[in-house]
Amino acid sequence: MNNINKIIIAVVFLVCITSCKQAELEYHSANNTILFEGIDQTGNKGYVPQDTNSFSFGYVPDNIKDSLYFLSVFTTGGPQSIDRPYKIDFSKNSTLKEGIDYELLTPQFVIRSGEVRDILVFRLLRTPKMQTDTLFLDMKLFPNENFETEMVNQIVGTGINKKKKNFTTHHFTVDDIAGAPWFWDPKKNPSATSLMGYLGDFSAKKFQIMASRFNWDLDVVTAEKYMPAANLLVAWSKSMQVYLNQMEAMGTPVYEVDGITLMKMGKYAQ
């Protein structure tokens, strides 16, 4: 009986392993299709395109003049033993201009031998125009002698949230406008008013100080629908107010950008 049980357990284990790997194997065994790498979601939500992204210098200190942006280009079908160039087009209508607003640090568009992806590296340059306008760069992948573009669109979401996402296009925006992130913006987040009881009014300078002091991941805290946990919110606000009180006691109070308004946290952090 023990041997039978062991065999049953082994069979079940192998079935589980096979099920988990099936989607990945099918994905890699598909034709050589080139695409911008998407998001491999957990559970049964599947693999979805990520055809838009953004970055704001408004959330980083003024002394930071550039930043790197990485974009992964992926191919199905598995690795091969030769270098395979792929075709990509940067729209001339883009307002983010190479040599002015960014530098492309990737010299060639090639899937290298033994690899299934290439990483495009952009050095974003903080230019004055970004303080008033959101600049964008549109990119598109095209088929060539090495790759097809069979994976193009995918419907994501349901109901009013249903939208078409694209595997072969990517729209990237950059600005230097420090608007309040979603969790701190009462126009977007109904709960923001309660949070402001701890954080106080939003300002770019306050955000930048907090981001530095608490080592925030800007991609996380500026994401739509992000909400800090209650214990983090309390810890951030009280710790920040202690810092502001200490600076004032030392004779070096922290003012907002106008140089007149004393920076302070919300009423619950006092």
Score class of each variant (00 low, 15 high):
L120Q: 13
P49L: 12
S81P: 01
G77F: 04
V121F: 00
G58N: 07
L105W: 04
N44A: 15
L105G: 06
N93S: 13
D83H: 14
V110L: 03
F57H: 04
F70H: 14
Y47I: 09
D118R: 01
E103I: 10
Q108S: 07
S56W: 01
D51H: 14
T76H: 12
N44V: 12
P49M: 13
T95L: 10
K65P: 00
L71T: 12
L71H: 12
S72G: 03
F90V: 13
D83P: 08
V73N: 01
F57I: 07
R123G: 03
V73D: 00
R117D: 04
V48E: 09
V48N: 04
R84Q: 08
Y59V: 12
L96G: 08
E103K: 15
Q108I: 06
V116A: 00
R123K: 15
I100W: 06
V110Q: 02
I88G: 07
Y59F: 15
E103N: 14
F57A: 04
S94K: 12
T52M: 06
Y69A: 13
R112N: 02
S54N: 13
I88M: 12
D101K: 04
T76V: 10
F57E: 05
Y69Q: 08
Q80S: 07
Y47G: 01
I119S: 04
Y69C: 02
S56K: 06
V48D: 02
F57Q: 03
G99H: 13
I88D: 03
I82A: 08
F74T: 07
Y47T: 05
I100N: 08
L120N: 11
Q50C: 04
G78S: 07
T95G: 09
E103A: 11
P49S: 14
L96P: 10
D62A: 12
R117F: 03
P49D: 11
S94N: 11
T95F: 06
S56L: 07
G114E: 06
I100E: 14
Y69R: 09
T52N: 09
V110N: 03
V110W: 03
K87M: 08
T75Y: 02
G78A: 06
D101H: 15
I119N: 07
I82W: 02
G77C: 05
G77L: 07
D101Y: 10
I111W: 00
R117H: 06
P79L: 08
L105E: 11
F90D: 13
G77K: 03
Y69K: 10
